[in-house]
Each structure stands twice: as C-alpha cells, then as structure tokens.
C-alpha cells in the first residue's frame, strides 16, 4: 500500500471540498450508451431503432461489426452487414457490445493514466462477462448482471480523472493518485450511478462489491459481481490461483461446489475470446 504524502492527503481533502460545494462534474453517460440503455428497457423500441442508433456512430458501428465477426461470436461465418449481425447475435448481445464500447476507458481523460484506465476497464469488462456466467449458473438476475459488472468499479476512473483535473501539485506521484482513486472509488461510483440514473441494483452493487456480505437488498447479485471480479483478475493478471478461486467466499455464498467452479472455469476460453474481441 502506498504511503500518502501530505500533498496527496491535501489533494484528497480538496476533492472532498469540491464534492461538498457541488463542484464535481461527473462525466456524462455517453449519449449513445444512454440511448442504448433506454432502448433495451423500452418494450416499444424496435430493432431498427437500435440499429439506426449504432450506425449513426460510424466508429461504434465498425467496432460492433468487428466484435460480431470475432471468433468469440461468429467462429464459422463472416458477417457482412449490420442487419446480418443483429439477426445472428440478437439485439441484446449487440446492445451489450455497444454499451461496453461506448462506456469505455476512452470516456476518461487523465493524462499519464491511459494505461491504468485501459487496465481498469479491461478488468471491468472481464468482471461483467464472468458475473453473467455466474448469474446464469445461479439462474438469478442475469439481465442486470452485465451492467452491474461493467460499472462495479466505475468510481475509480472517474475519481482518477477528477483528481487529475484538480491536482496542481507536481510532487504527488502516479501511484499516490492511483491509490487515491481507489479510495474514492466507492463513493464516486455511487454518485455516478445516481447521475446516470442507473437501476437501484446497479448502485447497490457498486457500493458493496468489496463488502458484499453487507449488501442490504442484493447480496446474491453483489456476491456474483465480487466473484466475477475475482475470476476476471484470475484470468487477466494470473495473480489469483485456481486454489484461491475454489476457496472464494463469494462463490461459496452463491452455493458453488468445487464441481460447479470447475464447470464455470470451463467457460474461460469463451470469456477470454469475448474479452479480447471487446477490447481490441
């Protein structure tokens, strides 16, 4: 753990003061992402609307097509049109891809921290994908889990950007700012969930991922995202051993027997391929 200098501690106080004065500008949820969420929650919306929305952003449309054509999704077929991709993959999956692409690390501007944000975001995506696999095994809350996993650590990059914005002291180290961003992650995540008008369950998961036993109403969902984060770290950083996964309290809480965990890990190549496709 990084020992914080006085300057870093002052920066933390400064951020709190900004928050108290209502001067923190949480990044806007990208218009495309906001619209994607709106469409997926509105039964009267049509597939054409979503297709039109994604195609209105050329970079996003290309990104979606690239992912749709990746081995993870279309191993034996080449998709040549957006409509074909929709038919092949289904609009919910296309929505998830679009959401992951539009709410991405690129939203955040924190000079010098680009690689850190990429890493944070890749972990968030991995968490979203693993959380969904876990939720499917549990037959619970599958619909909301991808979004919960994707945004569980949204407070970290937002804090990172805001700390960079208000920092005027050059003596504060890179690691200190990263450390501060993690300290503010939970509180900032809750602000983001409110600012972006997320379903209540998303806010609860953001607030309690690392404290899932204390989650007031959605302990299962929060434990699923916490376990998803562990699996994501296991896969991306290899800093977690398989033995540690077998001993995961979150997976135990969700009633995963050793056999179930091994069955879950059989999905690792699918998750890996999807993750690689989404983070190209």
């Amino acid at each position: 753990m990084v020992e914080l200098s006085n300057a870093a501690l002052e920066l933390a106080q400064n951020l709190k003061a900004h928050a108290a004065r209502g001067e923190l500008n949480v990044p806007m949820l990208p218009a495309v992402a906001s619209r994607v969420i709106q469409i997926t929650q509105d039964a009267t919306s049509t597939a054409d609307e979503l297709a039109e929305l994604i195609q209105s952003d050329q970079a996003l449309a290309m990104h979606v097509m690239r992912i749709a054509n990746s081995a993870a999704y279309s191993p034996n077929i080449t998709l040549v049109s957006f409509q074909q991709a929709i038919t092949r993959l289904g609009m919910n999956l296309i929505s998830e891809i679009a959401l992951a692409a539009s709410v991405s690390g690129k939203m955040f501007k924190a000079a010098g921290f680009e690689k850190d944000i990429d890493h944070i975001w890749k972990h968030a995506l991995g968490t979203a994908l693993w959380s969904k696999e876990i939720a499917k095994s549990c037959k619970r809350d599958v619909e909301a889990t991808f979004l919960c996993g994707l945004l569980h650590s949204i407070g970290t990059p937002v804090s990172l950007q805001l700390l960079c914005d208000i920092n005027t002291e050059s003596s504060i180290t890179h690691d200190e700012i990263l450390n501060l961003s993690q300290k503010f992650s939970r509180a900032m995540g809750k602000r983001v969930a409110i600012a972006w008008d997320m379903p209540e369950i998303v806010g609860e998961v953001i607030a309690f991922t690392n404290l899932w036993p204390e989650a007031p109403t959605a302990k299962d969902q929060t434990a699923a995202v916490s376990a998803g984060a562990l699996l994501s770290r296991w896969q991306i950083t290899q800093q977690i051993s398989e033995e540690e996964l077998l001993q995961s309290d979150a997976l135990a809480f969700l009633n995963f027997y050793e056999d179930d965990i091994h069955a879950l890990l059989e999905h690792s190549s699918i998750v890996h391929n999807t993750l690689e496709a989404m983070t190209v």
């Binding site: 619970r140 619909e143 379903p199």
Partner: peptide, 16 residues
C-alpha cells in the same frame, strides 16, 4: 437463457 426465456425460478429475478 434467463434473459428472453425464463423458467419458474429465474422469472422472479427479471429486471423490469
């Protein structure tokens, strides 16, 4: 798939 098609358990945890 518990997203479009649900069984008697998973339908109780649909989002909306």
């Amino acid at each position: 798939d518990h997203e479009h098609c649900f069984d008697h358990e998973s339908f109780l945890s649909i989002l909306y």
